[in-house]
Amino acid sequence: MSDNPPDLDSDVQNSLSELMREDYRLLLETFMNDAEMRLEHLRLNLDEQNWESFRQTAHSFRGSCGNMGAIALQKSCHLAEQAGTAEDADAARSAYLQLVVLYERVETLLHSLLQKI
């Protein structure tokens, strides 16, 4: 698994911390709230087979993952987006499950960052 992208790019987090200063904590919390909401949306869309909404949610999630330096999540979002476009239920489910796993790891990392502030 050495080829796999990092869960969280620490350089990105450093510059975000520098940019946001006292709002850095708020940014992390906002991201985590939003991420949980997006994952919940994706699960519902999957159940309802609402592929357009699935694609859009994944797309939007991809954007913020990119900005946060959550590279692995960002890549999986892209896979989910493509599955939504193709209306491929299996690929979508697999992408979703991957996102859940990856997010748990990112969330742990973010929490540890929060404690350092």
Binding site: M20, T30, D34, G63, S64, N67
Partner: peptide, 16 residues
């Protein structure tokens, strides 16, 4: 931007 985290980051960059 509908994504609050992205909006925060971009807003702060612009203010900066």
């Amino acid at each position: 931007d509908d994504n609050p985290a992205d909006r925060m980051i971009l807003g702060r960059l612009v203010e900066g």
